[in-house]
Write a protein that binds this DNA or RNA. Structure first.
Length: 136
DNA sequence: GCCAACGTTGGC
DNA sequence: GCCAACGTTGGC
């Protein structure tokens, strides 16, 4: 099983929206590197859900419910794909960007190394550590 | 509001 | 194929 981190601006689509809807097609990714990550996702993979810009914190865990399919919001024949994500669990408490940066064990975290990439892989030990930080 | 990072576009 | 210009993202 692989682990991931997906970003969303809460003003555009928040964890609360995600929970309310019970899941969503993760559409709108228009970057090849992020698309490649979407294509590598398999059902059962877990993804940290990060609120960018206004909140800057990991707030929950999503689970990949369906592997990639063409992004219905893109033109037919375009290379863009979406996966279907469902809520898996909220975090006990959000883990802020500052907290991620402050932990030297997360120095290689994709989010920190390439802050603009909207879908990044997360190493299992990084994933577990972030969950542990959320437990306080 | 500013700016750094970075991806894309287009002229040459 | 190179690179300058430009647009977008997202942290500060």
């Amino acid at each position: 099983m692989n682990h991931w981190l997906v970003k969303s601006e809460p003003e555009a689509y928040s964890w609360a929206d995600f929970v309310r809807e019970g899941g969503t097609d993760w559409t709108g990714v228009r970057n090849y590197q992020a698309r490649n990550n979407l294509q590598a996702m398999q059902p059962g993979d877990l993804a940290l859900f990060y609120h960018s810009v206004s909140e800057k914190a990991v707030v929950g865990v999503a689970i990949v419910h369906a592997a990639h399919a063409p992004d219905a919001t893109a033109e037919a024949g375009s290379p863009w794909v979406a996966v279907h994500l469902r809520p898996h669990a909220p975090l006990g408490r959000p883990v802020s960007l500052a907290a991620l940066k402050a932990d030297e064990r997360l120095a290689q975290l994709g989010l920190l190394r390439q802050s603009r990439l909207s879908v990044t892989p997360v190493r299992p030990e990084e994933f577990d550590l972030i969950l542990a930080l959320a437990e306080g």
